[in-house]
Write a protein that binds this DNA or RNA. Structure first.
Lengths: 264, 264
DNA sequence: TGTATTCTCTGACTGCAGTCAGAGAATATA
DNA sequence: TATATTCTCTGACTGCAGTCAGAGAATACA
C-alpha cells in the first residue's frame, strides 16, 4: 500500500539530504570538532547551564567537561558557578565565541541564498510555499497524543488556552481558573481522562472526557493550537478519547465533538 | 533581500532534518560502523569495483581496504579480481550481505510509512505533491551550467537527444550522426562554444552558439531534458551563451533562442 | 622493451566520539 | 545532624574516522 507515496518520500529525502542536509552538517567537516560547534550553537546568546546542555545534546558529563575545557582554552566560552545552586555550572560565550556562532549561523543563510539565487521570483514563491506545506504535514506526523495528568503545568496551560478562546468567542465574565481546579479530579480514571497532543515535547492540543452517566461519556475541553488546525490533530485526540471511553465500557457523546470541531 | 524565504528554508531544513534526516542517518547510530553500512549500501545488488567505491564515498584507499576486510571477515562481502584489469578488485555482497542491505533499505520504508500513517488520504496526496515540487525546485538549484568540449561522449549524447527530438517533431529523413561530427569544430573557440547543464554530474541540457558572421552569433542545439523543463534551465543556458558571445564581442541572435524556447 | 601510471594493500599514525568508575563539593531530605 | 542525591570533574579506557608513506603487482604508454 502507498508504495508510490513511500517512493516519493524516499526520493524527496535523498534530494533534500543532498541539498539542504548540508546545512545540518554545518557542524561536521569543519576545522572544529563537531561537538564543539554544537555546544557553541546550543549555549546560545544568553548562556546555558551545563546540565541542560548535557541533556539536550545527550553528552556524557565527563566528556562535556573536557569539550568545554577545550572551548574555554580557545577563549570561546567562560564557565562560572550558577548563582542559586553551587553544584551547577553556567557557560556563556565570549565575544569571540559569539563571532564563531554568527559564522555558523551564516552558513545556513548562505546555502539558502544559493538555492534561491538561480530561481525566478515566481519559483521562489512556489518553493517556499511548497516547503511550508511539507513542513506542516511533516509536523502533523510528529505529533503524539497520550493520556496525561490534568494537574500538570502543561495540562493547566492547555486549559488556559481553551478557556481564553472560549472567553474571546463568547462573552466574558466567568473565571476559568476556578473551573480548572474544580474539575481536575473529574478528568482522571475512573471518572474521566485527559489526553494531550504534543509536538517536539510542547503541548499543542488537548481533549478530555468524563464518564458522566452510566455508559455515556461527555467530550470536553477540546483545544488545538491555531497554527496546527486543519491537520487532523483534533480528530486524533477524539479517536484516543473514544478508545479510552470504549475501554471504560461507555459510549462517547460525539455530538459535542462535532460542536467543538469548528475550533480545530 | 529574501529574508523571509531564507527563514522559510532554514525552518524547513530543521523540520526535515529532524523528521526525514533520520533516514539518512540510518547509517549512523547502529551497531555497525557507519562506513561499513555505507559500503554495503553502495556495493549494491550487482557488486562494484573498489576504485569506484573509493571515489563515490571519498575514502582513503588504505582505509577502504581495512573496512572491506572487516566486512569480508563478517561474511558480508566477497572481493575478487576484476576480469579485464588485474589491478582492479571487485566487491560483491554475499547472501548475508544482501540481507543486511535489505534491512537498511527497510528502515527508510518504515519511516516513510510512519509519516504517512497519521495522515488522511487527502493529506498524503498534498504531502507527496508538495514534496515533488520542492524536490523539483531544489534540483533546479543544483544544476550547473558550464562550457564543455563538443566531442566528449556527454556532449554527443546531448546532441543525440536534440536530434532525436527534432526528428520526432518534424519529419524524419536526415542523419543526425553525420551532422554531429561535421559541426563539432564549429562549437569551439574561436568559432563558437557549447555549454552543458548538469544535474548530479549527469547532462540534462545543452546549448551551442556559433559566431557565424561578423558580430553576429547563432544559437543552436538548445535541448533540455523533458522532466526538467519549465525550471529555467534553458534560460540559464542562453544566459551563459550570451555571456560567451559578449566576451567574443558578438551579438547573439536571440530570435533563434525564442524559437527553441518552446522545447525547454 | 623500459618506464610511468594505476590500483591495492600494509604499517604507523593522530584525533574525535563515546563510556565507565570513582571522587569531591554543594544541596536536598529525613 | 546524618544521609542521600545532584552535579561536576579526573583518569583510564575502547573504537571509529581519517591521513600519510611506501611497497608490490598489473597495466598503459612511449
Amino acid at each position: 500500500m502507498d508504495a508510490k507515496a513511500v517512493r516519493q518520500i524516499r526520493s524527496f529525502n535523498r534530494t533534500v539530504a543532498e541539498r539542504i542536509g548540508a546545512v545540518n552538517d554545518r557542524f561536521l567537516h569543519q576545522r572544529r570538532p563537531m561537538n564543539e560547534s554544537r555546544l557553541i550553537w546550543e549555549i546560545g546568546l544568553k548562556g546555558e547551564e551545563l546540565r541542560t546542555l548535557r541533556m539536550r545534546l545527550g553528552l556524557d558529563s565527563g566528556y562535556l567537561t573536557r569539550v568545554m575545557g577545550s572551548l574555554a582554552k580557545q577563549g570561546l566560552v567562560r564557565v562560572r558557578l550558577a548563582k542559586e545552586d553551587g553544584r551547577v555550572r553556567f557557560a556563556h560565550l565570549t565575544k569571540r565565541g559569539l563571532r564563531v556562532r554568527t559564522e555558523l549561523d551564516g552558513r545556513s543563510d548562505e546555502l539558502a541564498l544559493q538555492i534561491l539565487d538561480v530561481l525566478t521570483e515566481k519559483q521562489r514563491e512556489q518553493l517556499t510555499s511548497a516547503m511550508r506545506q511539507v513542513e506542516r504535514l511533516l509536523e502533523a506526523s510528529m505529533i503524539h497524543v497520550a493520556t496525561e495528568d490534568p494537574t500538570s503545568p502543561d495540562a493547566i496551560w492547555c486549559f488556559e488556552q481553551y478557556f481564553a478562546e472560549l472567553k474571546s468567542r463568547f462573552e466574558p465574565g466567568f473565571d476559568p481558573a476556578r473551573s480548572i481546579s474544580a474539575e481536575a479530579h473529574e478528568l482522571v480514571p475512573p471518572r474521566g481522562a485527559l489526553v494531550i497532543a504534543r509536538l517536539r515535547g510542547q503541548p499543542v492540543g488537548c481533549g478530555a472526557v468524563t464518564f458522566a452517566k452510566k455508559r455515556v461519556a461527555e467530550l470536553r475541553r477540546m483545544w488545538v493550537s491555531p497554527p496546527l488546525r486543519g491537520l487532523g490533530v483534533g480528530r486524533r485526540v477524539i479517536n484516543e478519547l473514544e478508545r479510552l471511553a470504549t475501554e471504560a465500557n461507555v459510549h462517547l457523546v460525539t455530538k459535542l465533538a462535532i460542536q467543538t470541531e469548528t475550533k480545530m
